[in-house]
């Protein structure tokens, strides 16, 4: 065995950034390995978006109400084509597109990112419980790597899920008129920022909670309100004003806005660049807070 003094000094001589990246790579890899090496977990995480989009998306088909119905006003035999074009106008005015399924599909992309990032915090609770976190903390790995690895793990998983949702949505009949390479890149850029901010938030909460029950409770408390108080299912313009106020600061709405603009060509009320700026601030701020606070929370 070589002497520990030379070994330990050698380790600490390397620059902090390279140590940070090495730790980040190894720890992210560890978490992802647990995911892709466990076929059942992978399968279940694939089924979830299928269920949501396939069942919910098709069952909750608002477009069907307006078009292709046999509805008519008695005595006024309005031709079916007029009714259909009326319905389409109503749909376009409300949702910005005649395909409610496509409208919902983009909402589902943000939804799956939101839900998957929430779960990223959970693994920290388990790591703490099983002493793995303590073991990590006895090594000289920079503390930031531990936290960023968890955030990155949440982001990568949620983006992978989002890709699957998009593919399924296309298979189930999402409108592809506006879809090109750039619109996909822009959409996933927005989803990345949303996932990064949300994962940071939940990793931070997980660092704070000592058991998984409280972490589950917090996740459940936050996820549905965040989803319903966004434009995922329904346009913000049709909401009561107090709800509009909440929905218009909800980062989920911003990501969906970008996605709908890029993938479906639905005009955005604000320039897309503003939406991106907002999401970037959200992601960077929450990321920074969780890294800074992790120094304190990992110590106790």
């Amino acid at each position: 065995m070589e002497t520990s003094e030379t070994a330990s000094e050698k380790v600490l001589e390397t620059r902090l950034l390279s140590r940070f990246l090495r730790g980040l790579w190894s720890l992210t890899n560890r978490d992802l390995k647990k995911w892709y090496l466990a076929p059942t977990i992978l399968l279940i995480s694939l089924i979830q978006p299928v269920v949501w989009l396939g069942l919910f998306g098709n069952a909750f088909n608002l477009g069907k109400i307006f078009t292709g119905t046999s509805f008519n006003i008695p005595g006024l035999n309005i031709p079916q084509s007029v009714l259909n074009s009326l319905g389409n106008t109503l749909l376009t005015n409300t949702f910005g597109t005649t395909s409610y399924f496509s409208f919902l599909a983009v909402g589902m992309l943000a939804f799956i990112v939101l839900f998957t990032s929430m779960m990223s915090g959970m693994s920290i609770v388990w790591d703490r419980r099983f002493g793995f976190l303590d073991k990590l903390l006895t090594t000289p790995v920079p503390r930031g790597s531990i936290v960023v690895a968890k955030i990155l793990n949440g982001v990568i998983r949620s983006l992978a899920q989002a890709v699957i949702v998009l593919v399924i949505a296309v298979i189930l009949g999402m409108t592809l008129t506006y879809v090109n390479t750039w619109s996909v890149i822009v959409t996933f850029g927005a989803l990345f920022l949303l996932g990064f901010g949300m994962s940071s938030l939940f990793v931070l909460l997980a660092l704070h909670s000592k058991d998984w029950q409280s972490q589950m409770a917090i996740a459940n408390l936050l996820n549905l309100p965040l989803l319903f108080m966004s434009n995922a299912f329904f346009p913000v313009s049709e909401m009561p004003s107090w709800l509009q106020a909440v929905a218009s600061v909800n980062p989920v709405s911003f990501a969906i806005n970008i996605g709908r603009n890029a993938l479906l060509g639905i005009p955005s009320s604000t320039p897309i660049i503003y939406d991106f700026a907002y999401l970037s601030i959200f992601a960077v701020a929450l990321g920074a807070i969780s890294i800074i606070l992790s120094w304190k929370l990992l110590k106790d």
Partner: peptide, 22 residues
């Protein structure tokens, strides 16, 4: 406590720690 990650192999666990020590 037994801190090794149950889902990884013994070798991978040790390799992870070696990585963290740089």
């Amino acid at each position: 406590e037994f801190t090794a990650d149950e889902d990884l192999t013994g070798f991978d666990n040790a390799l992870l720690m070696a990585d963290l020590y740089g």
